[in-house]
Design a protein around this nucleic acid. Structure first.
Lengths: 341, 341
DNA sequence: ATCGTTTGCGGGAACGTTCCCGAAGATGAT
DNA sequence: ATCATCTTCGGGAACGTTCCCGCAAACGAT
């Protein structure tokens, strides 16, 4: 490999200077003759000198890279968050190492250990559905290792996080259905292990109670996060003695799976059953009727998470445990529109 | 930051050995007393010693990371490829640094230079639609810098690539429409700057000719890659004096944009116009009717690209210029099915 | 002339690791 | 007993950079 880059030594030798002086000249220090500096800078330019980042890392005992742990990135949710993170990290000279857990706690742990061995300066994490053991995270925190959770946060761990108010927006989604005349609303719930699932159930119940509707636990169907689960959920709905007139789903794929199944069984949406999803996806605009959904500020979320992490890294890891709650919004579309707003 | 890791020195000091001996013991060299080795290994284990990758990088003058340049990753196409790449790179101890060009040649260049400064050991690239200047790539090749293109390859550059036979599969898609009885087939074409666009046009024309159909240049509508472009394309179609009876689109988003517009204008799919997309996406199964599409072997593509690159890196960058052509397949669904197969 | 002070530069250690080379002590052969 | 050989280990340079320290020359002030 002929990748012998120009080093500071080459410049020093060419100009008959010491490496120290060249280093200081390039760093724009005061104790170097303006003419010397000029010569150094010009030669560096000419030779296309780029400082070797690896040796700098060794000096600083930092890798200037951060590890990201996500469950998947086939849906556009996490890619959009990554874009937000990169927009902060890139200008600051940090690299992002992305690692998928495929919803497996074991792989999640393996990836984190691997990234730790690679000396990342911090972690940005969205936990898998399987993750229950918080010991490792706790150890990181105890060692003041920079760590930020987003979206799916670990329970009972004192750590910085970037989230939306899932309860509130589940409330908004459910309330919207009620306003559209729904009186018997099913909730296709997420995995129990996830904090967001519980929060959204809470918001769903709150909305029912607020509007004087009964909370019927049998209307809360544990589903999951995938489209296939939505199909299964819809099949359970079809077997109900009394059909519901509204569905609030944990996310868009589940909502869409349910819609496909219901439609196939001759149920009209939104006339018979109105549907609302969560976490805006491209698919919402493609399914017919278009899906009403809660839109999360993905880019801003990534941005905030990265900023929070950099703050921790740069502040020599003082314990700046903070929770940032971002705003979301509801996109009302045909799947829930029974009457003009 | 209390990230003082255990170093080889710590172990040496604790056991009253030299760093050389500890290094050799951990590297399982022959010239070290079995008892000494045992002591070293055990203490390393106990102290949870992890070799500092940065100092190793400095020694090897390699960063053990590869840069990836992609136009976007909101669609699932590139994420799936990334997964394929990671499956190869991870076990070999290489990191992947992903960088988006947002279809901008300028940003693409900026990102590549930035990654070069970070001393990546190679590049895996899918060029942006804007990229026309191949000089930089040529320079890399001249310097024997490890480089692999996939999917969207640079023209006229002698370099390794991983692709599918776009011409062939465009042929298959078009032929399928012909077999379904289509006689007047529109092609919603991709950006002219892209190699794949030209290849798919060629395959489209070949199929028409092979089946004795006229090639009408006015039926080739330059579109782009986004759903919005598909909508515009469909609007052009609607203004045609004679409507076509089939559409072959450059990709799924364009096909779906077109379908939505056509449906809105009362055109039945596939009865009036049959539609085929390209590069299988999740959306194909969601749009109604479900979209017939050409499915690319994304994971295998990423895997092959990574293997090709590692081969170049490890072989000290000998010029192993190779082109790997992978198989694809057609998924026939309702959007093109006029008669049972 | 003598003494501080400024200005500009170089020496060398350090970051954590590997690896070449040499040096002991033990062992074997003559 | 002598010498070659094997075994086991340590010294030290190197990777590219920064940074602390010290040193010399030039300068001004006394």
């Amino acid at each position: 490999m002929i990748k012998s880059r120009v080093t500071i030594k080459d410049i020093a030798k060419a100009l008959n200077l010491s490496t120290s002086t060249v280093s200081r000249a390039l760093a724009d220090r005061w104790d170097v003759n303006p003419e010397t500096r000029k010569a150094v800078v010009e030669l560096a330019e000419k030779l296309n000198y780029m400082p070797n980042p690896i040796s700098l890392n060794l000096k600083h005992r930092q890798s200037f890279s951060v590890g990201m742990i996500i469950p998947e990135f086939i849906n556009s949710f996490f890619p959009e968050i990554i874009m937000g993170i990169q927009s902060v990290l890139e200008p600051e000279g940090y690299r992002l190492l992305i690692s998928q857990s495929n919803e497996s706690a074991e792989l999640e742990m393996k990836n984190m250990r691997s990234l730790e061995a690679k000396m990342v300066d911090g972690f940005i994490v969205s936990v898998s559905t399987e993750t229950t053991d918080m010991e490792y995270f706790q150890t990181l925190i105890d060692n003041h290792f920079p760590l930020v959770f987003f979206n799916r946060v670990a329970r009972n761990v004192p750590v910085s996080r970037v989230i939306i108010d899932d309860c509130k927006w589940a409330f908004v989604a459910t309330e919207h259905l009620i306003e559209q005349g729904c009186r018997r609303i099913v909730h296709l719930a997420g995995p129990e292990s996830l904090d967001v699932s519980a929060e959204r159930i809470r918001g769903y119940k709150d909305a029912l109670i607020r509007h004087g509707l009964p909370v019927d636990e049998s209307l809360i169907i544990p589903c999951g996060l995938l489209m296939e689960k939505g199909i299964l959920g819809a099949m359970q709905i079809l077997e109900m003695p009394v059909l519901p007139d509204g569905i609030f789903a944990i996310n868009d794929p589940v909502a869409i799976g349910a819609m496909k199944t219901l439609k196939k069984n001759g149920i009209r949406i939104p006339e018979d059953i109105a549907v609302v999803g969560f976490t805006e996806s491209k698919m919402a605009m493609i399914i017919e009727p278009n899906l009403t959904s809660i839109e999360q500020p993905t880019f801003a979320m990534g941005k905030a998470a990265a900023e929070l992490l950099l703050e921790q890294i740069k502040s020599n890891c003082e314990v700046t445990q903070r929770t940032i709650v971002l705003e979301a919004k509801i996109n009302i579309r045909e799947s829930s529109l029974r009457q003009p707003v």
